[in-house]
Design a binder for these strands. Structure first.
Lengths: 344, 344
DNA sequence: ACGCGCGATGTTGACGTCAACATCGACGGC
DNA sequence: GCCGTCGATGTTGACGTCAACATCGCGCGT
């Protein structure tokens, strides 16, 4: 079963012309049937559909895209699917795009180096897409100093206002405040913070909002520990926190790091929430089954995905952009990892 | 900034002709520069590249695909990105495809109903792809009774031999045996099993191999509990296992359910691994930080992704298929959730 | 000095689809 | 019975790219 015909050309599927010939109609009539136009006689329609089935015809989307001037496809640049948030957002974007009749073109950035990012962007320039959603942390964009191809609509899912593109993201500020005030409300003197990588805008926002909330309440601001979103980094930071008896409440910038922190606390025999209360951020499915089940800030990934797709499609069709950044509210999910401050 | 020109047509980006006009050369020369052919004078090349930059030219991939008869893109059908294994495999596929110069077209199945699957498949028929990798559990395929468009190369990532397509997957049999024998080797009289959904071929393989291993060693085969891959289902099954004093060793079909089981065991005051040993399957990043850190079977998702892409590309180019199913070896990662059987 | 070869560049047409326009026949109103 | 109308169908050309072929000019060998 060779993939080339006798002339050495790549074998192609049947085209409209083939279907037309078999059904004894013109190509245009086949086109009308394929596109569900109603001005075709029922008998003719049946004949054409039978011919399509017999030949295994499927419309050539390249020709269609060329003809129509649009791909009905959006590119999504992702760095890696290891982080829960990215994965979940991608899922939501894919769903929203499909519902809106757009296909998803996944463009992975192969590694963290600038050249890889640049590379992904230039690959993207050649991709069959009408617009792009960027799901990598925008700082990386900065460092790579890349210009996207001019005229390609773009939406960034991140928490920076530094870009010329529309932005959609969880309201990090509000979420972090929620977490911090929850802990203060339980009577803790102050709240420690295990933050995400300094290069992340989202992590930066969460950290700043945590700090602002403490100051608003006239509390002392303890030193920040930085992780890199992984459970391992949370564990390592946790080993330092666990030995500090002053620590009674920690706001962790994501659930994965919180898991590592919980492990470190267990290893040092510190009870959660008896000795230390912990709040995470994200609300992964697993968080409800951590030991103890984790109190956390739930991000609404579905809305983030839907809103970014909507914004992109609007941009594609109307050329609109430069809206205000869209912030999607987060909410607190109270479980067993937080409790009243211990008596001294 | 309207998206249509004065004639009401969708605005398109500049074409080769525009670049050619600006650079004062023919379209063909622009094509040669765009494709990095070497038979272009250095001076001319520079002039053309300058014109490209000035106009923001990017090649029209629809025209290119039409002309060349291939899209250089592969479709990946996924059901949902909630499960760790799917996500990780997708990541590996995307990476492998990119390295091989193929783009990824992500086609989500919106829900579990047959019509949604059928729908996804027919959408796929219209997608600009040269081949398809199916990442949903193949039983769903069965139920939907769908025929993929004839002539579209397909690879299935699953553990069934029921399909007419090449198959790549983790060696479930070997992985499950590894887990079971690890527990028997620690002196446990027998091993209980918390399995995945009965509709999953992978779950079925793991269950059968666990059973066969027990029988090989002349052990009693306890009743199986079924989950649905989620931590919540693991927790629910775990509540039943935790009250049964006979249970000293459990092989869980994935890490997420194992997490739920661990929680249930903690809630019932059963020590892990003192009273009960637990082995998972997958080795998600988080598993190393469960409490206690989880002994588990590590799947080699990178190889699964790479091999399925390779198989698909081979099929696309040579029309080869019907190879033997490819099974990728798994390995045991020993952590703290398993230990010697308790003395009675 | 003549022609041959070769590298650089130009010209043509085809890939598959679909909007716009053209055609054709039937039917109804007068 | 004539014409206008409308629905069904056919014909043409353009979307942007690139392989194949054509052309042009320069340098080198004899």
């Amino acid at each position: 079963m060779p993939a080339e015909d006798s002339a050495g050309r790549r074998r192609r599927g049947p085209s409209m012309a083939d279907v037309a010939r078999l059904a004894g109609v013109s190509g245009q009539t086949v086109s009308r049937v394929a596109n569900d136009r109603n001005n075709v006689d029922a008998v003719t329609r049946d004949r054409v559909q039978a011919a399509m089935r017999q030949l295994g015809y499927r419309p050539n989307s390249a020709a269609r895209a060329l003809r129509n001037g649009e791909y009905r496809s959006i590119g999504v640049i992702v760095f890696e699917l290891h982080s829960f948030g990215t994965t979940r957002t991608l899922d939501a974007i894919a769903t929203a795009a499909t519902i809106s009749g757009y296909a998803i073109n996944l463009v992975p950035v192969l590694d963290v180096t600038q050249s890889a990012v640049t590379n992904a962007f230039s690959r993207l320039g050649e991709q069959a897409v009408d617009g792009v959603i960027i799901l990598i942390e925008a700082h990386t964009l900065d460092e790579a100093g890349v210009r996207l191809p001019h005229g390609l609509p773009v939406v960034v899912v991140d928490s920076s206002a530094h870009y010329d593109y529309p932005i959609v993201d969880t309201d990090q500020r509000q979420g972090a405040r929620l977490a911090t005030e929850h802990l203060l409300g339980l009577g803790h003197a102050t709240v420690w913070h295990l933050g995400g990588p300094p290069t992340s805008f989202a992590a930066d926002r969460r950290r700043r909002s945590w700090e602002a909330t403490l100051l608003d309440h006239g509390r002392e601001v303890p030193p920040v520990l930085d992780g890199d979103w992984t459970a391992t980094s949370g564990y390592e930071a946790g080993r330092r926190l666990a030995t500090n008896a002053e620590v009674t409440a920690v706001f962790v910038a994501n659930d994965q790091m919180a898991l590592g922190l919980l492990r470190a606390l267990h290893e040092h025999g510190r009870d959660v929430p008896g000795d230390v209360s912990v709040v995470g951020f994200d609300d992964m499915e697993e968080s409800a089954h951590f030991w103890p089940p984790l109190t956390t800030i739930r991000q609404n990934f579905v809305d983030v995905g839907r809103l970014s797709v909507d914004a992109l499609i609007r941009e594609i069709h109307a050329g609109e952009h430069h809206h205000e950044p869209v912030a999607v509210a987060a909410k607190l999910v109270h479980r067993s990892s937080t409790g009243p401050a211990p008596h001294r």
